[in-house]
Amino acid sequence: MSRKPYLREETMRWVFRHPRYLRYMAREFSCLFIGGYGLLMVWGLKRLSEGPAAWRSFLEVLQSPASIAFHVLALGFALYHSVTWFKLTPKALPVQVGGEFLPDGIISGAHYAVWAALSLAVLILAGAF
């Protein structure tokens, strides 16, 4: 009997094979916005180090429509990153108490709670309200 195994070529079609792969891609694309925001932070530190006038012009650039659009989009992706990251945390760091593993929801829930408290603290300390 002759053997002639056939290997089908792997194409980019897998991304569309199931919604989970699109969700995965959305999660991974959050890096563009979080990384972009990191660069914005570097830029802001540069302007801050250059004195009050430079900082004022940085704030003006922040108010441009492009910056507002970036912020809205980036915030959406950053929230998605946070939600997915904490949802997956119990898989990476399971906690066994007295033999039984803590339910995933407890570990995720604790992370979500800390996240909410921390965000609120940052916003209050920064005088956002």
Partner: peptide, 26 residues
């Protein structure tokens, strides 16, 4: 592994390979 998590979603025995792999990474 890039933690797509698809392995755990399709596993008929609920082994959760994605969890095992992240634990191995850490």
């Amino acid at each position: 592994c890039s933690f797509t998590g698809a392995c755990s979603e399709v596993c008929p025995e609920h082994v959760d390979p994605a969890a095992a792999l992240q634990q191995v990474k850490i």
